[in-house]
Amino acid sequence: MSSSNVTTSGLEKEKNSFDTKAIWRTFWILLVITLFELIVAIIYFETHFFPKHILNGVFIIMTLAKAFFIVAEFMHLGHEIKNLIMTIAIPACLFIWFIIAFLWDGSSFHTLRMRYDGYQLQQSKTIVKPAEHKEEGKKPGKE
């Protein structure tokens, strides 16, 4: 391996690799995505124009896009070598299982409650007026 000439050029490249323009571009992307989310959320709040679960999908995709830009550009991971990217990206894939498994568990719990927990079922159908709305009863151990 002829490393001597590569070493210096690598160093030079590193010094000049800091790209202010790319940072500001990332900033604008993040800002625009956030504003878009905000506007869509407000439109939904005012009009209930589209189904909420589709909107949630949009929000999650936007969030993942923002996360990608922060990690790749601000944290510079996109410019590191593949080994480093993989040592972070592969364990992060555990989140896919983590999210699916536990949300599934939650929704299963919901189904079971609605089937077997009479109190919960009744509560889920009882509309209370804002004036009647009260906080939950005191928990044991609380004064």
């Binding site: 536990f102 939650g106 719990f109 409650r113 919960q120 889920s124």
Partner: peptide, 10 residues
């Protein structure tokens, strides 16, 4: 866990 609880609530 927040998501799980939210999914399990009516």
């Amino acid at each position: 866990s927040y998501g799980t609880i939210r999914f399990s609530s009516y």
